[in-house]
């Protein structure tokens, strides 16, 4: 019963499965962030505006992406 297995895992009773999901969510979030920041820079957004949207400091976002998307 593959469906049942999925449900059980989603409920989080196996830390290994749960952590694997968290790790993939992080990778997914990082990739989406990189794509969106690149696009925003391409559209001429200043670093401050990107930082505000992400809820981080301008320095943090610039340090992370400044070299890649100048």
């Amino acid at each position: 019963m593959p469906d049942h297995t999925l449900m059980t895992a989603a409920a989080g009773d196996d830390p290994a499965e749960g952590l694997r999901a968290v790790r993939s969510l992080r990778v997914l979030a990082d990739r989406l962030e990189a794509l969106q920041v690149e696009r925003a820079r391409g559209l001429g957004w200043p670093w401050q505006q990107i930082a505000d949207a992400l809820g981080v400091t301008r320095q943090a976002v610039h340090k992370k992406y400044g070299k890649r998307f100048p």
């Binding site: 895992a9 999901a21 993939s24 969510l25 997914l28 794509l35």
Partner: peptide
């Protein structure tokens, strides 16, 4: 690596994320 199976466990369908991202990017 994006683990589609692991993401499905928390209700994220990697295929539909991929479709949407590719529509834009």
């Amino acid at each position: 690596v994006l683990d589609a199976e692991a993401l499905a466990l928390v209700g994220v369908d990697l295929e539909s994320v991929r479709t949407q991202v590719e529509a834009t990017f």
